[in-house]
Amino acid sequence: MAMRDGALKTDRDTMRLEWIDDILAVLDCGSLAQAAEKRMLTQSAFTRRARTIEDSIGTTLFDRRRKPVTLMPAVQMLEPELRELSTRMHKLRHTLRTASNTSGKPLTFVCQHALTTTISPRIVRAATQDGETSVRVRSGNQDECILQLLSKEVDLAIMYALPKDATSDISSAFETVNLGDDLLVPVCAPSLRADASNAVIPTIAYPADVFLGQVFARMIRPRLPGAATTLPIAETALTLAMVQLALSGIGIAWLPLSLVADALDHGDLIRVDDVLPAQVLNIKMVRLRGARTDNNDKIWRHLAEHLQIAP
């Protein structure tokens, strides 16, 4: 009998989430009969379950003086708490299930800083379409992205690269997929439009040791018109900070078009690539060769097929 009682207690413990959902079904439907249909039970089985819930809790939850039978007013007042608890418990159950399943291991990826804001939401949406995959997002400069791949801290990285540039090709230790292109474009506040044609151009600069700083030095500066030179007014490696500096009228900035599209649409920034050079950038998805799992390989293929990015 002790074992039987223990077994009953375990069964009741595992039913508690079902009990909450049963109560919410009555709240939603307004009667035991309709709630039974929603919960895919016969009316007699649902009525027995209602009795079990009351016996276990030790109080009356259902007002049987009314027809149709519904919940007591005091229970109805607890609806917000019941809904929140149901949501939390369903989420916890899902998390526990996926945590013990290797196919549910979170995907971890890192984006180059300039891509985190614009690209990572699309990657998360594409990777989690099946409802089973969770995602962890990191951000870093290009060197940090590569180091995190090499140390296997992340499953994949999203980075910029110069098109057809042999010197910047990712090492043979990595697999790469080209997701599309972006454009490093000169932009400024409308009040600085004329400054783009000056002999000395006020700019917001990247540090020389970051990827976009190297792109500027190699691909932009040599193509400045005539004898024009740049005068750095401010310097930052953070593209989001550079956007704010450009919006403030500090100087002309070379920024990814994907990052400033909204500001351009609203007229807060303007493009000046009719006067100053722009540079096409490839967007690459990168992973370490040989560090794949069945699940991550599936996600990699899915992203390669569905995550195509246009400038």
Rank of each mutant, 00 (worst) to 15 (best):
T87P: 00
V185W: 02
L107G: 03
A161E: 14
A291E: 07
N141K: 09
K105N: 13
V280R: 12
M285P: 00
S172T: 15
D169Q: 15
A173S: 13
W254R: 05
S31L: 06
V243R: 07
S100G: 15
S100T: 15
L150D: 13
M3H: 15
I283D: 01
L162T: 09
E84H: 12
T52F: 07
L257F: 14
D274W: 05
A199W: 07
E54G: 06
T52E: 15
M72H: 02
K164E: 13
A166Q: 14
K284A: 04
R83S: 13
G213Q: 08
L17R: 10
P277Y: 06
Y160A: 08
D181H: 12
A161I: 04
A208P: 01
E37L: 14
I20N: 05
V275F: 02
K38M: 14
D262I: 15
W300P: 00
M40L: 09
G30Q: 11
L212W: 03
M219Y: 06
D262W: 05
A310D: 03
A199P: 01
S258Q: 03
A253E: 02
D265R: 14
M1G: 14
V286P: 00
P106C: 12
L245G: 03
W19Y: 10
Q279R: 05
S171N: 11
V26C: 02
A278F: 05
S258T: 04
P222T: 09
K67G: 06
G267F: 10
A126S: 14
N141E: 12
P232E: 07
R287C: 09
